[in-house]
């Protein structure tokens, strides 16, 4: 119960931050990506602001084995790149640029984005649901880079 409470609190604060920062505004997000047009640096301030408390949290976490609610602290990050990471990030970035939505803001603004927001979320969920099956299908037909991870 306590886990759910803190999860909801974190999710709520995340959503509030996305709203306050203006990152639910798709044109502002596309403005950050529009280096050759009317460039909008707001996203850099959001990212910078978010990294400060998070960097402190990682330093605190490094001195502990367990989190406040008794779960192990996540293990040190894997310092290894793979084709899935790069190909996936390129696909994600293309979608992000097309409409200015990424998963967090898509949900945070889901009650104000109307039908357009619903269409985006349904397409995103459909892709997320099918990806594991696609990976399995490709893995059985031949070895390709993007099926090997996980």
């Amino acid at each position: 119960m306590l886990r759910m409470f803190f999860a909801a609190l974190a999710g709520g604060l995340f959503g509030a931050g996305l709203l306050v920062s203006g990152m639910v505004d798709t044109v502002k997000v596309q403005g950050w990506l529009d280096v050759f047009g009317a460039w909008d640096p707001t996203l850099a301030f959001v990212m910078g602001g978010a990294i400060i408390p998070m960097a402190i949290a990682w330093r605190v976490a490094a001195r502990r084995k367990l989190s406040g609610l008794g779960t192990p602290i996540p293990s040190p990050s894997v310092q290894k790149l793979d084709p899935n990471l790069i190909a996936g990030s390129i696909l994600f970035g293309a979608g992000w640029g097309l409409v200015g939505l990424c998963p967090g803001p898509a949900l945070a603004a889901s009650t104000i984005n109307g039908l357009s927001g619903v269409i985006f979320i349904l397409a995103m969920l459909a892709a997320m649901i099918t990806l594991p099956a696609l990976r399995r299908a490709f893995a059985s037909t031949g070895k390709t880079a993007w099926t090997s991870a996980r």
Partner: peptide, 14 residues
Amino acid sequence: AAGLLVGFGTRLAN
């Protein structure tokens, strides 16, 4: 198109 790209891409890149 954007929803599919974001869904596939973020899960592929974890």
